[in-house]
């Protein structure tokens, strides 16, 4: 079938665990709740998460444990509390996605191990958007070495799997906008975006997303990486993935449910719904790619 709804959500645990400590965190929590209602109304069969907080090395990994259950503690914000979880995973869809990825040249594997550490971002998103497991979910990793081609083709393989299985899908990127945290502990009441520059870029991204210009924001990914991202991985990939999964265009209805700082980062909840309207496609700088043929062994020449 198709992607019926999508969006971005922050993965930091504050809106889940301590929304009362800061009005911004509470608003982000309320944004999650409003988005949850819209997701339910769209009646998706599966909720697909691409988490920037689940790094992988061996290709991309896809969660396929039908019922993962654990008590999660964030490695940085461990003092905010423990998060018990039990999720409902669509293992059949996870396997279908892996098959579709392989057909496009993407190395991918499913993981289904008791105790596998599901990342904070995925746990936060699922607890807030799907608290009663009404919609089965699938979670995928972000490969630390992958750049645009691999990420985009992986997203297209998701569309293949959606088409093949006939599912209605909700696709979500768990990500921050600007991702610079404060490097010292702050009073929650003093939280703010780390710098004016980060704030300006965040506002520009939110403007584009509110206008439904998803592919335009994806085309800006390399610039975003340079301007407002701490460079933990090779590039800022989540918008490439989201746009690839949603069809690589600018015809969406966008809604910014919430935006605010979480420990200095730009935390947002944004919904995107496919629409006949929207801003037309401009001339894009980035090439399109259908099949991944490898990294050309640049490093081993």
């Amino acid at each position: 079938m198709s992607v019926v709804i999508g969006g971005i959500v922050t993965g930091l645990p504050h809106p889940l665990l301590v929304p009362e400590q800061n009005p911004h965190w509470r608003r982000v929590r309320q944004g999650f709740e409003a988005f949850r209602e819209e997701i339910l109304a769209a009646k998706p069969d599966v909720l697909v998460i691409y988490s920037t907080m689940w790094p992988s090395v061996i290709g991309h990994q896809i969660q396929a444990d039908p019922e993962p259950e654990w008590v999660h503690v964030d490695e940085l914000f461990h003092d905010l509390g423990s998060i018990p979880y039990k999720f409902r995973i669509d293992a059949d869809f996870a396997h279908a996605w892996r098959e579709a990825a392989l057909e496009r040249g993407i190395h991918a594997r499913t993981v289904a191990y008791h105790g596998f550490p599901i990342d904070t971002g995925s746990v936060t998103a699922l607890k807030l958007l799907n608290p009663d497991n009404a919609i089965p979910a699938v979670i995928c990793s972000s490969n630390v070495y992958a750049d645009r081609a691999e990420t985009l083709v992986f997203a297209k393989s998701l569309r293949d799997a959606i088409e093949k299985t006939g599912k209605r899908a909700c696709v979500l990127a768990v990500m921050s906008l600007s991702n610079r945290l404060f490097t010292d502990f702050i009073d929650p009441a003093d939280d703010h975006i780390h710098s004016d520059k980060d704030e300006e870029w965040n506002q520009k991204l939110l403007q584009f997303l509110a206008e439904g210009r998803l592919e335009d924001t994806a085309q800006l990914s390399r610039q975003i990486q340079k301007q407002i991202r701490v460079k933990k991985v090779v590039n800022f990939k989540s918008l490439w993935w989201l746009s690839g999964a949603m069809g690589q265009h600018n015809r969406y209805e966008g809604k910014v449910h919430a935006y605010g700082p979480i420990m200095g980062t730009g935390a947002a909840v944004v919904r995107l719904t496919p629409s006949e309207d929207g801003i037309g496609d401009k001339e894009f700088d980035e090439d399109d790619v259908e099949v991944f043929r490898g990294d050309r062994d640049v490093l081993s020449d």
């Binding site: 790094p55 090395v57 008791h114 105790g115 596998f116």
Partner: peptide, 13 residues
Amino acid sequence: NKSVDPIFPNLFR
């Protein structure tokens, strides 16, 4: 507790 490697879960549980 149990430690499962998020990168190589096939090797380390």
